[in-house]
Write a protein that binds this DNA or RNA. Structure first.
Lengths: 225, 225
DNA sequence: GCACGGTGTGAACACTTGTTCACTCATCTG
DNA sequence: CAGATGAGTGAACAAGTGTTCACACCGTGC
């Protein structure tokens, strides 16, 4: 039980069926089902395993859900971390970031479909876990903001408010994108351009922002709430 | 069956249990359950009715879900329509709109919890119905935008892109707000201020926007995607 | 090489589920 | 008032559910 090189084959096989269970669940969710409506038996059936085996890996379905959040968010964090290290200001960088992000989404479609679905639709623990991840992205992004000329002078509170605005915009666009058929590159291109423009508007607004800013009186305004 | 004044008591009682079924479902969803995981029997039990009675009102649970979307969106549309008629540009109006909207949310908490949960978490028809409603709000808002000085000169495409940005921001804030305990006015106040500032940033960005705008080279930029 | 430990098995359990049916009885129609 | 109408009832059904159990098997550690 303590040995280092030991438990090789045994453990590998265990992780294999564990992965099969997680994939079975995530595929169902990506296929339109909500995680809460999945039955334990259904998941084991798709994973090619008998129901009783499930308990060797997870206490119950909630535990499976949390494991899925962990795994999918881990993938996402890897991308974000890579992107943060190569951050250079400018418009071309923004457009490029949107491009690589949307490409990443396409190659991890099921994972994002799961996160999008369960972000508000899931059980309380799952929702909290995802919210914690999103909050982490916001804080990190605010720190990155602080490194740039204008934004460096703003209080952390304002930076987080703008980072949250930006992250929420990306997440919203993500939700819309995932509803579209996977193989309509033209519609997806339009979505990408729309998201890029929205981020441009946010950054433009951020550049005009000072602590305590109020809108000009007559200029333009927002009619409905 | 054709009579006009007829079917008074009969029909009233029917609508009454129909309403009981809808409320039972929406209360469960507001209480944390996802609609897809609700069982027909569970709903009828909470409504104080025998399972077989369900079929007098809805073909199946999906039909109930769609009816709930219809009803909740109808409430929301009433508020929006009222707000649109009293639209006056300016910063105080924006802050006031946020205030009345958040108050409205508190008095219709369960309905918004249902919409937020099922927007991405629900079945395909439900998701499509909600998406259609949101799309409608975006288009209306874009039309309202067009009435103001600077925005009137922008192409419809740009206006809808900004309206979508604004609506998504409100929806995101709504999602965060609903996760908070219902009786923490201080935290809710902070959320309201944050949302107001985010909308200000968007409007500021919109005022600086011209068709085909790109970000200035060195100024400030967005690091992560 | 052998006994232990743990993953996967198949059967069994008590329960809940969606749907159907003949029925009652208050309400509407003529 | 008498008969038709249809909302709500209670029982029944097959099917699916989560969970438990003794057991078979094979990789692991001595």
């Amino acid at each position: 039980m303590v040995a280092f090189a030991g438990m090789a084959i045994r453990d590998a096989k265990k992780q294999q069926t564990r992965q099969a269970l997680m994939e079975a669940a995530i595929d169902q969710v990506a296929g339109g089902r909500s995680f809460a409506s999945l039955s334990l038996r259904e998941v084991t059936r798709d994973a090619g395993v008998v129901p009783a085996s499930f308990y060797r890996h997870f206490r119950d379905m909630d535990a499976l859900g949390l494991a899925l959040v962990d795994e999918t968010c881990q993938q996402l964090r890897r991308l974000i971390r890579a992107a943060r290290s190569t951050s250079v200001p400018g418009d071309t960088m923004l457009a490029a970031s949107v491009g690589t992000f949307l490409l990443f989404v396409q190659t991890h479609r099921a994972a994002f479909q799961f996160l999008t679905r369960e972000r508000h639709g899931g059980s309380r623990p799952v929702r909290e876990a995802i919210a914690r991840e999103v909050r982490g992205f916001v804080v990190d992004l605010a720190v990155d903001f602080a490194r740039y000329p204008h934004f460096g002078k703003l209080p952390r509170e304002d930076l987080e408010m703008m980072a949250s605005l930006l992250v929420n915009t990306v997440v919203s666009a993500l939700g819309e994108l995932l509803e579209l058929a996977a193989d309509h590159p033209d519609v997806q291109g339009a979505q990408a351009r729309k998201l890029t423009d929205q981020l441009r508007v946010i950054v433009l607004g951020g550049l005009a922002w000072r602590p305590g800013t109020r809108l000009p009186a007559g200029a333009g305004a927002m009619p409905a709430g």
